[in-house]
Amino acid sequence: MFRFYLISFFICICSILYSQEIEGKVVAITDGDTFKLLTHDSTLIRVRVANIDCPERKQPFSKKAKQFTSDAIFNKQVELKVLKKDRYGRSIAYVFYDNKNLSEELLKAGLAWHYVKYSDDKTLQNLEDKARKEKVGLWIEADAIAPWDWRSSRKKRKQQ
């Protein structure tokens, strides 16, 4: 019986740690999918928007993605549903503002890719597919390069 309680306790702790809800004010926009949040207790958190990937700096539409994110959430109160931390210490989170999900809004605007390496969310994929079909945002370019491919090609060039 003790083993059952120990396992139940462990499962509860894991779910608390990996599905945390945080509220705060957005105080800086790094790029289209990364920003800084100041919590109510004055903790500064670096946030990476979950399950999408916006163009990198120097890629087409990078500035538009950053501006979209800034217009949507900068200096506003938002709610995060933190999924996990990444290797850079950023909180990977769904970001909610004005009854909207930032991941979804960036995809609708054609300013992000659904990050299928980390997500199998059909809603997000459908939003990307619709933006592609309607040639919204970055999808006006037939040869748009996904950020993960762009980063990979830059690494290979640096190694040569």
Rank of each mutant, 00 (worst) to 15 (best):
E21G: 03
S153G: 00
L44H: 05
I92G: 07
T123K: 15
K133Q: 12
Q59L: 11
K36D: 11
Q125K: 09
D86H: 08
A144S: 14
A93Y: 03
Q20N: 12
N101P: 01
T43D: 14
P55C: 14
L106F: 01
V136P: 02
T39E: 08
Q160G: 06
A112H: 03
Y97E: 04
V116D: 09
F9R: 05
L37H: 03
D129T: 04
M1N: 10
K100F: 03
K76N: 10
A72E: 15
G110M: 05
P147T: 03
G89A: 13
L44K: 08
V78R: 06
W113D: 06
W113H: 09
P55V: 09
G32K: 04
G24Y: 04
W150D: 09
V136G: 06
A144I: 08
P147W: 05
R48I: 01
I13W: 13
G89F: 10
F2E: 12
S119F: 03
I16E: 05
N51P: 00
S62Y: 14
Q77N: 15
C12M: 12
G137P: 07
S91Q: 11
K25Y: 07
F2R: 10
W113N: 07
D53T: 02
G32Q: 02
I92A: 07
A146Q: 11
G24L: 09
F2N: 11
A131L: 07
V95Y: 11
R132M: 12
L102P: 04
R157I: 03
L37S: 08
D121Q: 08
V27L: 14
R154P: 00
N75I: 01
I145G: 03
K156P: 00
I13L: 15
A146K: 12
K122A: 14
R3C: 11
W150E: 08
V26H: 10
K108L: 11
A72P: 03
L83C: 00
N99C: 04
R154G: 00
E134G: 01
D53V: 05
T123L: 14
K85A: 08
R3H: 12
K84W: 07
E128V: 05
T69F: 04
V26A: 15
K64S: 13
V82L: 04
N75W: 11
